[in-house]
Nucleic acid binder design. Structure first.
Ligand code: FES
Ligand code: FES
Lengths: 149, 149
DNA sequence: GCATATTCAGATCAATCAAGTAGGAATTTA
DNA sequence: TAAATTCCTACTTGATTGATCTGAATATGC
């Protein structure tokens, strides 16, 4: 269920880039981060609409962060590129289930959503832009084990 | 990034159904759970290949769980319907990044994957098939503003 | 002023995937 | 043997993703 769209990956890489260079044009970021220029342009439009970026138009213009990276939650970034993340459709409107009104699977999905939201809200842009960041303190990192089977 | 496919939702609903009725045909489950018959047939093929279901062919046949529901993790169910969930593409092969080998966004995505995996592995099919299950003990259920401890 | 570098806005397009359909073969039982 | 089932393969359809194209609006430097 769960592949992060390149749009979001691009957005985060670009934002991380902007944390270091205080201001930069889309063209320069696109080249440095190997992101399609026109695509990144559209993405930055979204990030600006979401209030995460400020644009300086005209010659020698560019984009800069609207806030300090410590104040930008990753949940905001994800919400800016993708819409509001709703795990299951039957959670949509009034939260009713077709099958039964006391739907147990629904609770399961809700718990998953809460888990993901909590993680995304626990990390700021500043944290992933600077070295020394690692979310979970699990010593046994099975990075390669995840890709093996 | 994160909409659960109906295939997975169907699979879970059908499995929950199978926890109660020890054995049932695809047709009966499809009707009871309002799932397209042919679609559920295909899904059950996957669940059987994954070793979660056992099929009894022929007349008065049907499907039954291969194990007790207490021994079926939700992570197995999800992995059966969808493939192995890989959040970002650049995490694919050797785990290298195009941009830099010490990629910080990559850690962020990895943390997200670990978080989701941990949740999916913490819930069994038996738990979501019986009443009285609620993963997070948060009394104030708010959809948008989740737990910000 | 004018060329130039930028953001901005809109349409468009190809590829992929999700969701569902269709037809029929194989298998077991009544 | 007939009916009910699983099984298998292919197809269709619609939405989404990822990206491109065209060009306008805007500001700066010279
Ligand atoms: S609310 Fe989604 S299956 Fe019940
Ligand atoms: S590994 Fe994905 S952006 Fe670096």
């Amino acid at each position: 269920m769960f592949q992060v769209p390149t749009k979001t990956q691009y957005a985060i890489r670009a934002l991380v880039h902007l944390v270091r260079t205080k201001s930069a044009s889309v063209a320069s970021i696109a080249e440095a981060e190997h992101i399609p220029f026109k695509y990144l342009e559209a993405i930055f439009g979204q990030l600006k609409s979401a209030g995460l970026l400020i644009a300086d138009r005209g010659r020698s213009g560019g984009y800069r962060l609207a806030r300090a990276p410590e104040l930008i939650l990753m949940s905001e970034v994800v919400k800016a590129t993708e819409g509001d993340i709703t795990p299951v459709g039957c959670l949509d409107d009034a939260g009713f289930c077709i099958v039964s009104e006391a739907c147990l699977p629904r609770r399961f999905w809700f718990g998953l959503k809460r888990t993901v939201d909590a993680y995304l809200e626990s990390v700021t842009l500043a944290e992933i832009a600077e070295p020394g960041f690692l979310p979970a303190p699990d010593p046994s990192q099975k990075e390669s084990a995840a890709a093996k089977d």
